[in-house]
Design a binder for these strands. Structure first.
Length: 710
RNA sequence: GGGCAAUUAACUCAGUGGUAGAGUGCUUCGUUCACAUCGAAGAAGUCGCUGGUUCGAAUCCAGCAUUGCCCACCA
């Protein structure tokens, strides 16, 4: 025995992966039932965390299991352009390296910088996926900004627009003043922060507000219709005095949304800068008066405070109001502040012209698919969260004022103006733009201009929502992959992107094809640090999965993340657990080394009738393990399947059977008996290695190749 | 304010109706003949609390407590 070392050299993993690829192991093979997995594409930010190791570990384990059970497996790899995230990073980079903002650099140059960025990070992303051992077919690799993806996105946009599921309009949106773009509701985080509530005298009434600086945009005062205190004012106008000293008349309206218990029960209405007020304004036909611009600064309406940032102007304005005797009191208050998930900036609700998807019309089909069980969620309780979200859904703002992202297939007439509009030169088009895959040669609106493409880009999640379709060849409806692998079989992802991604894929797929995008979804939970705290860069408690792979090996990391964990539950990362599975890798390696040393007869167990009780019991138990392993996979109890495998291999196989047969080999004089012992050991080991190959593919491949020439 | 989950050995977690399990740690012993990243034996838990269903509950139901996560238009 030989030159085989006493431990598995995990630095060989890259080499093993290359062998797999060369042998075409991950190409869909055979005539089995198609089983397709589209991986959640990691961002080209160059940022991989333990969650990636977990999700790719889980889905690869499922893929390998399906493959060895005769399925024709297609696993599609890819990467996401991550518009807002990458743009923010590149902006930071050029600011640091060149001292330039993106506007100083210009759109074209900026996009070149982004191209450089992706050119640098795409290969790294691919490399990382390979280090996780992902058994994906690289011939199917897709980037969300590649040519085909762009065609899919444009086609989807045009089709959805034609189905009237996409519309353009002027509404109050979440504006990120730092990134200078609108963002969707899902990209906004709410934080409770201590704040002040200002009780301002508005004519004969008092209103309580947390944002006195928006008073220049006030257009009404609202009270609850059932509130007797204010009955006599409803329908009347009251005259108020602003901080500028100007007088202004505001109508008093009655609306159910006003809580009589809060504050004075009277609330100032600023439709341009508050979501509630905007909606109330629409109900009551009130004008929208903007007093904060897209840079978060006060407009001319604010008189001497014009040009100041809203927050900076607050105290001076209050001071002035106090001097005018218009502040009744100031109280402490816990305000909820809307924060941009990506930039951390305080969101400014802003009226602007944006593109929206009518998700409200798509939700019924999305609800139905899960309710009827066409799409199955594991764990099942995720369904409730999904239903709740869908039932409270608002239309989705899909346009972004970013530069990096999919451009809209929208073409504006350059001669379009109020004048053209009034002439009604083209009664069919009263918006000044058309939506089409290609830019028209001649403007169909004015008949002469060259038309200009809409400067906006799309929310990253728009292209992500098309991912299962785009990766399989759509919009070519006759694409062979689409026919064979769509709807896809299985999706594994984090619960944190249930709304962002999973729900949108379901809605968009159904809107475009009438079909669901996938049949099964497995959700994993958050990975926490060893203190049970959420991992985040700012806390500095993140772990680099690639560094852990360098140190302990990919198989060990994968098993440590999967083993003994229930579907969907959060788990703590501990080095102890990683060591447990690293030791398991060594144990398997050495048990195999021993069995290989007993000879390499490929013989089957000679005569099952000659087996003694110990052997029979062991083999029966092994059969039961194989059954329960397969059963556990069907319900995605991979953590349990692996733990059982661990227990069985270590204690039943290595500690019991192996020691038992070792004794036979050392002490028995009966050559037939010895041959039987060898055969039982080899047969059992090989069956166990098959089960282990789902979880520890690198290790099992190396064992088979170095010890059993298989 | 609403929703979802978790609570099991000192620590990290499995276990979902039938006499409590693993890894780490701890105690004792063994072993250079696959593996010290080893083996054998052991100590250690009234399975958060209170009720209920059941022949039988860590497991099912109700309530409570604590912790975590998600959602939400009281300005």
């Amino acid at each position: 025995m030989t030159e085989i070392p006493t431990r598995f050299d995990h630095t060989k993993e890259a080499e093993i992966y290359q062998k797999w690829e060369k042998a075409g192991e991950f190409k869909p093979k055979g005539s089995g039932e198609p089983f397709s997995i589209i991986i959640p594409p990691p961002n080209v930010t160059g940022d991989l965390h333990l969650g990636h190791a977990l999700t790719y570990g889980l889905q690869d384990t499922v893929a390998r299991h399906a493959r060895r059970h005769g399925k024709k497996v297609l696993m599609v790899p890819g990467a996401d352009h991550a518009a807002i995230a990458v743009q923010a990073l590149v902006e930071k980079k050029i600011q640091k390296e060149k001292g330039l903002s993106r506007t100083q650099l210009g759109r074209e140059k900026f996009l070149e910088e982004v191209q450089d960025w992706t050119a640098h990070y795409l290969p790294r992303v691919k490399e990382s996926l390979k280090r996780f051992g992902l058994s994906a077919d690289w011939g199917h690799f897709r980037f969300t900004m590649d040519e085909h993806s762009q065609l899919a996105v444009k086609t989807a946009f045009v089709e959805l627009y034609e189905k009237k599921l996409i519309y353009r309009g002027e509404y109050l949106v979440n504006w990120d003043p730092k990134l200078q773009t609108a963002i969707s509701d899902d990209e906004v985080l709410n934080e409770d922060r201590p704040a002040k509530l200002y009780w301002l005298k508005y004519g004969p009434l008092t209103v309580a507000t947390s944002r006195p600086e928006t008073q220049f945009g006030d257009v009404a005062i609202a009270v609850n219709p059932k509130d007797k205190r204010y009955e006599k004012y409803v329908g009347q106008e009251v005259e108020i005095v602003l901080a500028t000293g100007q007088k202004k008349k505001l109508p008093v309206i009655a609306d159910e949304f006003v809580d009589p218990e809060f504050g004075t029960g009277a609330v100032k209405i600023t439709p341009a800068h508050d979501k509630n007020d905007f909606e109330a304004g629409q109900r009551h036909n009130l004008p929208v008066v903007q007093t904060i611009d897209k840079y978060g600064k006060l407009t001319d309406l604010a008189g001497e405070w014009a040009g100041l940032k809203a927050l900076e102007a607050r105290e001076p304005i209050v001071k002035k109001l106090e001097e005018l005797g218009l502040v009744e009191k100031v109280t402490d208050y816990n305000a909820r502040v809307a924060i941009s998930e990506r930039s951390g900036a305080i969101i400014e609700p802003l009226i602007s012209t944006q593109w929206f998807m009518k998700t409200t019309e798509l939700k019924d089909a999305a609800l139905k698919a899960v309710k009827l069980g066409d799409i199955k969620f594991t764990p099942k309780n995720v369904e409730k969260v999904y239903f709740h979200w869908l039932n409270n859904l608002h239309d989705w703002c899909i346009s972004r004022q970013l530069w990096w992202g999919h451009e809209l297939p929208v073409w504006h007439c350059q001669n379009w103006s109020a004048k053209t509009k009034s002439q009604k030169s083209n009664p069919k088009n009263n918006e000044g733009f058309i939506v089409a895959l290609e830019k028209p040669k001649v403007c169909p609106i004015c008949g002469e201009c060259a038309m200009e493409q809409d400067p906006d880009t799309l929310d990253t999640w728009f292209s992500a929502g098309l991912w299962p379709l785009a990766t399989l060849g759509w919009p070519d409806k006759t694409a062979p992959d689409l026919k064979e692998y769509y709807p896809t079989s299985f999706l594994e992802t984090g619960q944190d992107i249930l709304f962002f991604w999973v729900a949108r894929m379901i809605m968009m797929s159904q809107a475009l094809t009438g079909e669901i995008p996938f049949k099964e979804v497995l959700f994993h939970g958050l990975i926490l640090d060893d203190q049970g705290k959420k991992m985040s860069k700012s806390k500095g408690n993140t772990m680099d999965p690639l560094a852990l792979i360098d140190k302990y090996g990919s198989d060990a990391l994968r098993m440590s993340l999967i083993g003994g964990n229930s579907p969907g539950l959060p788990q703590r990362y501990t080095e102890t657990k990683l060591l447990k599975y690293r030791n398991f890798v060594t144990k398997i390696w050495n048990a195999a080394r021993f069995v290989a040393s007993t000879g390499n007869s490929k013989s089957q167990i000679p005569n099952p009738k000659q087996l003694d009780e110990t052997e029979k019991k062991f083999l029966e138990k092994l059969s039961r393990l194989e059954e329960s392993n397969h059963k556990d996979f069907k319900t995605y109890k991979l953590g349990l399947a692996l733990e059982e495998l661990y227990e069985f291999f270590w204690h039943d196989f290595a500690d019991q059977l192996l020691e038992y047969e070792k004794k036979v080999l050392l002490e028995s004089a009966d050559e037939t008996r010895k041959a039987q012992a060898e055969a039982v050991l080899q047969d059992s080991l090989k069956r166990l290695l098959v089960l282990l190959s789902d979880f520890a593919p690198f290790l099992v491949t190396e064992i088979n190749q170095t010890m059993f020439d298989a």
